[in-house]
Amino acid sequence: MDIVCDKRAGGTLLQVNGRMDAVYAPAFEKECLLVIDGGEIKVVVDLTGLEYISSAGLRSILVSAKKAKVKGCSIQFCGVSGMVEEVFKISGLFTLFSIVPTVEEAFAA
């Protein structure tokens, strides 16, 4: 898994590529918490390049979202498809989070 962090005027974009399993999920959580703790008010997580996610990945996403809520940072997800979309649906993440198709829509929201 690799994460590209892009600081923009409207917030920070985190592009996650590869596989978010029990081995790599902590790296996502660390990166995300670093941005939130840095005082960012908006984080957009682009999962277009994510091929696989397990419950460990969901756990890291939930930990990050909880931290964002406490810190008053909005967190949005986009580019959810395939296996990742199915896992999100089963876990009820579509009702829990703001999820839009594209990065542009996430920044416009």
Partner: peptide, 22 residues
């Protein structure tokens, strides 16, 4: 429990549930 807000949502317990649902 899936129908909760972010603050109350437990972070664990999804692994076996994902397996049985898929």
């Amino acid at each position: 429990a899936l129908e909760q807000n972010v603050e109350e949502r437990p972070i664990g317990g999804l692994g076996v549930y994902l397996v049985t649902q898929m």
